[in-house]
Design a protein around this nucleic acid. Structure first.
Lengths: 251, 251
DNA sequence: CGACTATTTGACGCCAGTCAACACCGGTGG
DNA sequence: CCACCGGTGTTGACTGGCGTCAAATAGTCG
């Protein structure tokens, strides 16, 4: 794959990943090129389809090019819990590079495009590009940090705060790659997906969304989040972006 | 202090870490030696004391030598959520090696002994020992995997299942380093800590522990977990150890 | 238009939270 | 030796946030 350059180049998975990493450390153009070369074939996935099944042995990892992807597990009774929602440029199952066998499912929430990155190339990066390897390592511990914040949400936040927090987080993460801001962002998912991501039922999510709308804090409709009052949304959520580690530090 | 008995050497942080890693891949004795050399000074911590405060800049990471340590966050209203409980041999904030600034607190739940591992030595490992570096990377994604299972617990499991699941997990993790089995294990923490780890109140934890006792599934008393019926505990929890990745695979 | 999915709303129930009192236990000092 | 104390565990009565069930409405696509 060729390196994208220029101000208005279309956003690819690698260029979004580069934006994400450059918000946290410097990434040389050589390193970006190494990433490009590690990327293999691309696939289109339809909404609702499984990308990786829990328990499968993995030889490749998935880089998200377009759409929304979820990591999730189901219980025997059918209850589903989404553990993280992924956006463009997320190296979705880089965890699988080390785990070799994933413990959870990865599925397309919206219509998606993904790229497959063979583990062989990643092993080479750990051998020949230690700083880039640490950046990839960083991106997995960033996932872990996001997942820890989710534990706090589902464990201790009220229903309305969980939803508000999810929206603050997605606004911030999408903002880094230029796909959203404090006034809103596209979010092509269903209320049921929000419920599965927050540990609630879709009925209750609907009630809380109505409350957020009635109080003129935010609206989520037709796959679009419109934020009317960012400050009150943040206050409702008790959102503190420190856990997203948006700080350029040598790593 | 109790006398060491038997032929085996006393369990140190590094030897417990080595046991943990060798349950997942081969670790050469040279690599174990490199780990030993990376370890710096040792400290005793009293129960309830903070080890790392959220937001601090980090130059060292913590290896747990003795006791139980928790990662946790608090909300403004005082609600606490423990995101992971750590046992001997856990490289508690190896995440901090990449994050540089931790997003959560790390505190001693019981009386503890910890070792400090300077980041400089870890950077050298990533430059000179890529396989060992991948093993350390693995241990951070294993933490992430454990934390994802916690999201499932607090998001979708019933109160009694959350407690049962925590006990199944700790039994298994302690079993790897020889400190527990399916009949029980020492767990020097309070019911309030169990509540904070499961997203419940201590009152309700107490009720659920009584139920587990009355149904002769398990007893938790005086810092000791006694499992009367492992199979029913597993069934209550819907515990499936796949997420602990206890499988020797080249990584 | 019809079939289907997603959203919305209301009525009602229950699991876990809240509040409060009491028991237990080891430690401390009179 | 006992009285006292603070921390932890235990129990009961009551509450409430969120789940469950069900039905109506809106949106979408062939």
């Amino acid at each position: 794959m060729k390196l994208q350059s220029g101000v208005s180049a279309p956003l690819t998975g690698v260029s979004a990943l580069a934006l994400k990493l450059r918000a946290r450390d410097t990434l040389s153009s050589e390193e970006e090129q190494v990433l490009c070369e590690a990327v293999g074939e691309t696939r289109e996935i339809r909404p609702g389809h499984l990308i990786v099944r829990a328990g499968d042995r993995l030889e490749t990892s998935v880089l998200l090019e377009r759409g929304i992807v979820a990591r999730y597990k189901d219980l025997a009774g059918g209850e589903r819990q989404i553990q993280e929602l992924h956006v463009i440029g997320d190296f979705v199952d880089l965890h699988g590079f080390l785990l070799k066998r994933l413990d959870h499912n990865i599925g397309a929430v919206s219509s998606c495009r993904i790229s497959l990155v063979p583990h062989k190339g990643l092993t080479r990066i750990t051998e020949e590009h230690p700083h880039l390897a640490r950046m990839l390592w960083f991106s997995t511990v960033l996932d872990a940090s996001i997942q820890r914040e989710t534990i706090l949400s589902v464990g201790r936040r009220s229903a309305i705060a969980r939803i508000a927090h999810l929206m603050c987080e997605l606004s911030t993460r999408l903002g880094i790659i230029g796909l959203g801001d404090r006034r809103g962002f596209p979010l092509p998912i269903k209320q049921l997906d929000v419920a599965d991501a927050t540990g609630l039922t879709s009925v209750h999510v609907n009630r809380m969304l109505k409350q957020l709308r009635d109080e003129e804090i935010m609206t989520f409709r037709n796959g679009l989040v419109t934020i009317h009052d960012w400050d009150r949304l943040v206050a409702t959520a008790e959102f503190d972006p420190i856990y997203l580690h948006i700080e350029r530090i040598p790593r």
